[in-house]
Design a protein around this nucleic acid. Structure first.
Lengths: 210, 210
DNA sequence: TCTATTTTATGACTACTAGTCATTTTATAT
DNA sequence: ATATAAAATGACTAGTAGTCATAAAATAGA
């Protein structure tokens, strides 16, 4: 009835409020330096209340990161719209990922922080992982584009498409992770992030060409 | 004089004892689940003593990981000995890295854990980073092999060798990191680690071919 | 409107652990 | 044997995730 529905709506709204507050705190201080007290203060609730809605600090961060993953998926899907070969679309997806990181580094950092977390700290099932990777992430789209590229005779077919797709996804994710999480490394080694990214795309796309 | 030298030797020996004990604990429980009390118990010293030799838990782990990096460097350098083109040697380096991870996953995990650590938790300078990457790691060797490959006309020269080398290093490191740190991901996605690794090497080496 | 029950929220408390430091023990110098 | 320096100790502090007994607010029913 109406009251139960309203209460459920309010519960979801409260949950969203907590996620938004957490996002603010995590984005400004990073996951490790943020405390549940910080977040409680930001959302103006007691710390105990956070644990009514989330299992743990990691669980709350994961909710924040999933929002980020959804947004990243949106911009990379949008980048594949319009004309061009599968290879070109894959290139555009990669660059859209980089641009996403450049324009919203804190958001990308939240995705990478989730990526770095130990699975047992997250207490998620194999099914959860599959959903996250195949439905919320961009692997599925990469897979489709690789299959299309094989059909277009532009992408090599001697390596199974699903292996190519996963390898692509892992390497792009990783170089973006270096750029996002280790700017100091680039400074220390006197490397240009842009050049490394371009070099990476060039070599990886060249590597899958037929 | 003799006494001062003996005391210095004993100090270094004590330091090595602590590192070995830490290695045992970190390898069996992982960095995050290990406590300084665990390590103190293993080495049969008081916790306060650990802080006479190391700045922090992360500092101690770094000492453990540096030993691992040195061993990895040794086996990958050995893999480049003997005949073959620069490309073949690069391939052998990559496979030696994978084999190292397979035969001593805890050791590789210690390297990857260091890699994932936030630089400010480690309080190391840019010079330290340069030393670690260029003198203790394998980037230097990769750089030389890429330059040799360009001379052999087997590796493309339109992308500067140092960018190729760093890109190679980052991508190999990253796929090995997935394999080392996220076995659950492979299970969840029903992927073969070996196939992903072979696919990765195939595509990346193909990508740098002239 | 009042009372009982359910739901939501609270914040003091517990448990844990990195790191510290006043004190003790051991080694060295005189 | 005594004074001093070096090495070691482990109780303690500080911080924080997570808990839970209790309170407050909302709802149901008479």
């Amino acid at each position: 009835m109406g009251i139960a529905e309203r209460k459920e709506r309010e519960k979801q709204q409260r949950r969203e409020e907590i996620i938004l507050a957490a996002e603010k705190v995590f984005f400004s201080k990073g996951f490790h330096l943020s405390t549940m007290d910080d977040i409680a203060e930001e959302v103006e609730l007691s710390k105990g209340t956070l644990y009514l809605y989330f299992k743990s600090k990691e669980d709350l961060h994961m909710a924040v990161a999933r929002t980020s993953i959804r947004l990243l998926r949106e911009v990379t899907l949008k980048a594949t719209e319009g004309g061009g070969t599968a290879l070109e679309k894959l290139g555009r997806m990669g660059r859209a990922t980089v641009e996403f990181s450049r324009t919203d580094p804190d958001r990308m950092r939240s995705i990478m922080t989730l990526e770095e977390m130990e699975p047992q700290a997250l207490s998620i099932t194999a099914g959860d992982v599959q959903d996250l990777i195949y439905k919320e992430s961009t692997v599925g789209t990469v897979m489709q584009l690789v299959e299309l590229g094989v059909k277009e005779k532009l992408i090599r077919e001697d390596v199974p498409a699903y292996l190519v797709a996963h390898t692509l996804w892992m390497t792009v994710l990783s170089v973006v992770r270096f750029v996002t999480m280790k700017p100091g490394l680039f400074e220390a080694l006197e490397l240009s992030q842009d050049q490394i990214l371009e070099s990476h795309f060039e070599l990886v796309l060249n590597g899958i060409k037929s």
